[in-house]
Computed example of a mutant assay.
Amino acid sequence: METSLETVALFSLKLAYEEEGLSPILRDDMVMGDYQKDVFELLVKRGDVEAIQFKMNECLNLALDALGGVEKPLGRELRKLSSELAQARSVEQLGQPLLALKGYLRDIL
C-alpha cells in the first residue's frame, strides 16, 4: 500500500508541476519529501487513516487544479475517485480507491 500511496502522490505532483521539456519529477526530488514511501509506511503502521487522507488530499487537489478543476471532465472524475478515498475509515478500506486513483492518474499522464 505504501508504494501505491507514493505513486499517487508522484503522479499528482507530476500533473501539477512537471513541464514539457524540463527534467521529470522523480521519487527522490525535494517536492516528494513529505510523500515518500517511508513516510506512508509509518502512517500505515500507525493506522493513521486521517493523516494519509490529508496527505493524499494535498496532492490530489494540486492535480485537480492542473486538470482545470471539477468543471472539466478529467477533474470531475478525479474528484469522484478522491471522494471514495476520503470515505475510507480504515487502512484496509483505502486499498481499492487508491488503486483506482493510481490507475486513473497513470492513464492521464
Rank of each mutant, 00 (worst) to 15 (best):
Y35Q: 09
R46C: 03
R27Q: 12
E71S: 11
A16E: 09
K72Y: 00
N57D: 14
S12L: 07
L85N: 02
D38M: 09
L98H: 01
L98R: 06
E77L: 11
E92S: 13
F40P: 04
K72S: 11
T7F: 03
P97C: 05
G75Q: 10
D28N: 14
R89P: 00
E58M: 13
L10A: 04
G103A: 08
M1E: 02
N57C: 11
V39W: 00
G69P: 05
G47E: 10
G103K: 09
L85V: 02
Q87R: 15
L109G: 13
R46K: 15
K102R: 15
A100Q: 14
S23D: 15
L13D: 03
A88V: 02
S12Q: 11
L109Y: 06
M1V: 06
L98D: 01
L78S: 07
L98V: 05
V31Q: 06
L101K: 05
R46Y: 06
R79A: 10
E20S: 13
G33I: 12
G75D: 10
Q36K: 14
V44K: 05
L78D: 05
Q87M: 14
E41C: 00
L81W: 02
T7H: 08
A9P: 07
G75P: 05
L42W: 00
A88C: 08
S83T: 09
K55T: 04
A100I: 03
E41M: 08
V39D: 09
K14F: 04
M1H: 00
N61H: 11
K102T: 08
E2D: 09
L10H: 04
A63C: 12
Q36S: 10
L78F: 00
E50M: 13
V44Y: 00
V39T: 14
E84M: 11
L64N: 10
L81T: 02
Q96K: 14
L43I: 01
T3A: 07
R27K: 15
